[in-house]
Amino acid sequence: MTSTEQVGTQALDLHRVAGTLQAIEGNIQRVMRGKDRVVRLALITLLAEGHLLVEDVPGVGKTLLAKALARSIDCSVSRVQFTPDLLPSDVTGVTVYAPDTGAFAFRPGPIFANVVLGDEINRAGPKTQSALLEAMEERTVTIDGTTHQLARPFMVIATQNPIELEGTYPLPEAQRDRFLMRIAIGYPHADDELEIVRTHGATDRLAELGPVADTGAVMEAVHTIREVRVSEPIERYLIAVCRATRNHRDVELGASPRASLALLRAVRVAAAIDGRDHVVPDDVKALAGHVLPHRLILRPDAELAGTTALDVIADILSGMPAPTE
């Protein structure tokens, strides 16, 4: 195969992938009223093989997002409500004795799904949390000496309630690093909320939602997206943004190299969804505010002054010369 053909094939692939992804995105947007940005970020997380941390109050559509995503790509979805007494095996699954066969059989837990919704993850004890996080990172679960592969694609959408902190075990900063992005869904716009109220109960939009792709197409997209080109100026810009968090005056602990890698994966997907075969600095600017903030630890004095990690990223971006060529 000559290089010209390669380029041609690749361009064709990317074109098809963009079509698939835009179809999925449009599909979810039909049920997630006015939440285009959240849908986009969730899709990016899925394609970047990352996990999503949603910090928001209940009732804004976290479950809806997970279900719509799963339905659109025709895959399994499961939900775990984290409570203080939840055990690791409640998440991962257990080996049980089957009397009829006389053997031990593995009964997979809810984590063996393509999309796992973990509600109020901070309510579970550290042991359970870390079992989940390990599974997220390794994409395997080992029970009684047997290693089980998790499904692909695999994505955890974990939620944290930022209001009720009593009796919770907030994720340690080091663990938050495992999530590709942290997003807040936010209350819908007044018009959108009116639409939601009016249509709720009249028709089950979710039930009407049909799949527009399958897991195979998604995995193909995941592989194809790795071909999206990141030119050297972009790489340098991306790294400069990440490194700047380490020297910022308000930051105690900056973004790790894992953060740079995460941002790189995310911008590739963003470019692909836009139908581009190359990453532009705008991708970096758009995603830095979602990929980086939850990995930063601010100085106490900055936090007291009301500075948020998002402010820090915005400050860095406004001072970082963007490449134009």
Binding site: V7, V230, S231, P233, R276, D277, H278, V279, T324
Partner: peptide, 12 residues
């Protein structure tokens, strides 16, 4: 802008 960026950042 898209064309310029494609030119600048190795796009088609």
């Amino acid at each position: 802008a898209g064309t310029v960026q494609a030119a600048a950042f190795d796009g088609e």
